[in-house]
Structure formats: C-alpha cells, structure tokens
Computed example of a mutant assay.
Amino acid sequence: MSQAAESDPHTKVNEQWHRWYQTVNRLAWPVYHAAAARFVEGFRKDAGGYFGNWILLPTTKKVAAIVTVMNEKDTILSVLEQLHRLPLHELIVVVNGSTDESFEIIRNQSRATIVHYREALGHDVGRAIGAKLAESEILLFLDGDFPIQAEHLVPFVDAIEQGMDIALNNISPYIGLFSGRDDVTTVKEFINRAMAREDLQANSLTAVPHAMRKQAAQRIGYANLAIPPKAQVIALDRGMRISSPASVDVITTNRHRSRNVGRNNAVSELIIGDHIEALKTVLDLKGSRLSFQDRIRHR
C-alpha cells in the first residue's frame, strides 16, 4: 500500500469501524449503513473536518474498483462520485475506443489509474486488463455507463470478505417469467445448470457489479476473464466458491445504444457467442451429457 493510502483518513476510519464491527453480530444492510454513518459522524466530531457521505466497508483488505469506459461523458462523473465514497486502495479506469471527453473528465475529477486504448476493446477485455493490473486483494467490477450507489456495492465486497471467491449480481428478480426471457438470459441459465449450479439461475460474470478475489482471477487466468461465461465455467470446475449476495437492477437502467437494442442485436449475439465458447468448455470438462443424468434410456 502506498504511503498516501496508509495515511488516508477514510482508510483509518474504516480500520476502526472494522475492528468494532468484528465484535458485534452481523447487521442487516440498512442497519449496517445507519450504524456506519453514525460512526463516521462521531469520528468527524472528534477529528474535525468534512468527510462527505463516506461509506465504510466490512473489511480491511485492499479493494480495487475496475471501471470500463467507452464514450461515457454523461455518466462517468456520477460513477466516480459513488466510488469516491468508498475507502478504495485502487481505482482503475480502462478507457477504450472513446471519442468524447471521458478521458479528460476522469483525469480531472479523480486520482484513478487510467489505462487508455484508442481502439475499442469491449467491457470484458477491459475488465481483464484491469484485473491483471490491480494489486488489491478484492476486485470490484463496474461499467462507466451508469452509476451504482456505493451502499449497493458493499454486499459484494462483504461476500469476498466472508470467504467467497466470486460474488455475482443476482439479476434473477428482474428477468421475469421463463416465457418472456430473451436468448441471452436463457443461455446464461443453461450454462449454470450444465455445471450443476442451478441455484445461480441466470446470474453471470457478464453482469456488473460483481466482485472477485484477486487470487481467483489469477487461477482462472486473465485471458479467460475476457470471456466471462468461460471464466465462470472454469471457476466452477475448479471448485471456487460463487454466490449472488445482492441484487442491483442493471437491466432497466442499462444505457440503450444502437448495438444493444432490438432482438438479435450485436451485443446479444456477442454474449451468446461467448456462451457457446463456454459450453464447449463444459463439454470438454463434463462430456456430452454435461452434468445431466441419463434417467430415461437403459443401455
């Protein structure tokens, strides 16, 4: 950790908070945030100064937020404002294929490490690059196209603190009945069922926010992270602990672009293609029956 990070008052307050939080029973998230806010207020009265609306994390592990950005000048400032509320050790922003002022906004409004590519890499490749560069123990992945309240990110970090290797966004409450689901949602759920993890439903590394232990990213392989469903299959095959600790609605709030609107759009076809590659990995690992038992035919 850098000397600046060690002397950061937000980090110091978080360390004291975590020390206290370990002495009490786990709190429901609304109660947790209310108690943490009072803790910050008490520290502010004692030390003086303005701390803003800080959020405290139930961990003293180093946390990195990795954000991918492509032409997000209208939203990236709001994304950064929420992340600045957290006691992060690192903020890594991968700007790729941008032709707007995203880079300048990030450079002027944060102390983020900015990785800049003129060509468009896509969110998944950007996340893989950020994961490889990060030094922190917990990696938190977001996109720059819509802000997520800092409070809603805490359960993902907490899941890693509690022993999970990967913490997925539980999008299941937002996808509706099976009859109305799109092809992308269907194939996500099929991959999980093929790996005997039907409890994960349609939850996938393709959706943000999600968190991951740095060691898990290393074991999966950074190149494999660029194909999220394949990375998820590898993680499950290697016995990594995966849960879906919280739900953040990234479906109705997702920014509409020409590439992700309409049936069989370019983004959905790309995601389905990634899942076909993941399915090939499942077939290689499990055989033609995948994880499904042959209950009917007798040989």
Rank of each mutant, 00 (worst) to 15 (best):
W54I: 08
W54F: 09
I55N: 14
L56D: 09
P58Q: 02
T60H: 07
K62M: 13
V63G: 01
A64W: 00
A64G: 11
A64M: 07
A64S: 15
A64F: 08
A65T: 07
A65H: 09
A65I: 07
I66D: 03
V67C: 00
T68Y: 11
V69N: 12
N71G: 09
N71E: 13
N71C: 06
K73V: 14
D74I: 00
T75E: 10
L80R: 06
E81D: 14
E81K: 11
Q82F: 02
Q82M: 01
L83N: 05
H84P: 00
R85C: 10
L86D: 01
L86I: 04
L86C: 01
L88C: 04
L88S: 03
H89A: 13
E90T: 07
E90Q: 10
V93F: 05
V94H: 13
V94P: 12
V94Y: 15
V95Q: 15
N96W: 06
N96H: 15
S98V: 01
S98G: 09
T99M: 14
S102T: 08
S102W: 13
F103P: 06
F103Q: 15
E104C: 01
I105V: 14
I106E: 14
R107E: 06
R107G: 01
R107L: 00
R111I: 01
A112S: 14
T113V: 10
I114L: 12
V115I: 15
H116L: 11
Y117V: 09
E119K: 12
A120Q: 14
D124W: 08
V125G: 07
R127I: 00
R127V: 00
A128C: 01
I129T: 08
G130F: 01
G130T: 03
K132Y: 09
K132Q: 13
L133W: 02
L133A: 12
A134C: 11
E135R: 12
E137R: 02
E137S: 08
I138A: 06
L139N: 09
L140S: 04
F141H: 02
F141A: 03
L142D: 03
L142V: 09
G144I: 11
D145S: 11
D145H: 10
F146M: 09
F146A: 05
I148W: 06
Q149F: 07
A150G: 00
E151S: 05
E151A: 11
H152R: 06
A159H: 05
A159Q: 03
I160D: 02
E161V: 05
E161L: 07
Q162R: 14
G163I: 03
D165K: 01
I166P: 04
I166F: 06
A167Y: 07
I171L: 08
S172R: 02
Y174S: 00
I175G: 02
L177A: 15
L177N: 12
F178T: 10
F178N: 11
